[in-house]
């Protein structure tokens, strides 16, 4: 079986500095791969080469058997890879429905004029969120009135609703309290059970061990090693992050 995502020999040079070199890994459907590493290890650069924000200097990315390298972020997204950034990119003044449909809003015609179909979008948002195990108390309230975990859920729901088969999450629990971190971890499990592949960026060890099927450690722009959670320990991962390889 070929992997859902195949990353081969990625290298990125910014001016004279080599930010990332020779990064190779796979992500399978329904699998959560954690990219671990200290600040500046190159995690974000790798992610941006997958999502189309940066073009790699060398190497390539294949998704579901077709080449992604060189495509625009929009093309990568419509191929089925959603990236959820730390800031979530939500419009705080709009309700969950409109956030879910932002850029692809539903309209219906009244006397030949298009009108937003707010009730329909709201109903679908509640449905998608319920499938992810999240209940929103008031679906007509703007998302700024929701908790951090619920806001994260809306960002994830948006990805899932538009048929993402691979979701990239950048430090999803960084700004959350402990109960909300649990909610997000439970969400990741549910996504996996739906066959969605996940790349999780994190340097929080409990998260890494809770979510990962495989851990890929980056240090100073190269892969310092790859481990399964059962085969390794906190100490080893930290040592690898610090650059004391293998």
């Amino acid at each position: 079986m070929t992997a859902l995502l195949q990353v081969r020999g990625l290298k990125k040079r910014f001016g004279g500095i080599e930010a990332v070199s020779n990064v190779t890994f796979d992500v399978n459907a329904g699998e959560c791969v954690v990219l671990a590493g200290d600040n500046g290890a190159g995690k974000s650069t790798v992610i941006k080469m997958i999502s189309g924000v940066h073009a790699p200097t060398e190497g390539n990315v294949q998704f579901d058997g077709s080449l992604l390298t060189g495509r625009s972020p929009e093309a990568v997204r419509s191929a089925g890879i959603e990236t959820i950034y730390q800031d979530l990119a939500l419009a705080d003044n709009l309700d969950p429905g409109l956030n879910l449909y932002l850029g692809r809003e539903r309209t219906r015609r009244v006397c030949g004029l298009p009108f937003l179909d707010r009730p329909e979008m709201r109903r679908n948002a509640v449905e998608v969120l319920r499938n992810l195990g999240i209940v929103i108390p008031d679906p007509s309230a703007p998302v700024r009135e929701l908790s951090g975990g619920q806001r994260q859920a809306i960002a994830i729901a948006r990805a899932v609703h538009w048929q993402a088969r691979l979701v990239i999450m950048d430090e999803p629990t960084a700004a959350l309290g402990v109960p909300e971190q649990r909610e997000v971890m439970a969400l990741i499990d549910r996504l996996k059970s739906k066959g969605v592949g996940i790349i999780l960026i994190s340097h929080n060890l409990p998260d890494i061990f809770a979510a990962a099927d495989r851990i890929i450690v980056l240090a100073r722009g190269v892969v310092a090693g790859e481990r399964r959670p059962a085969e390794t320990s906190d100490e080893e991962i930290v040592r690898m992050m610090m650059g004391a390889t293998l």
Binding site: E74, R77, Y85, D87, A89, L90, A91, D92, N93, L94, L98, N99, L102, G103, R104, E105, T107, L113, P114, F115, L116
Partner: peptide
């Protein structure tokens, strides 16, 4: 402002430019 996609994008732009940009607007 209240019934078109243009209006929603205007509100979203005012709240968070990244939200509309990443939505492909």
């Amino acid at each position: 402002l209240t019934h078109t996609r243009f209006g929603v994008h205007t509100y979203a732009l005012g709240a968070n430019r990244a939200s509309v940009e990443r939505a492909g607007v």
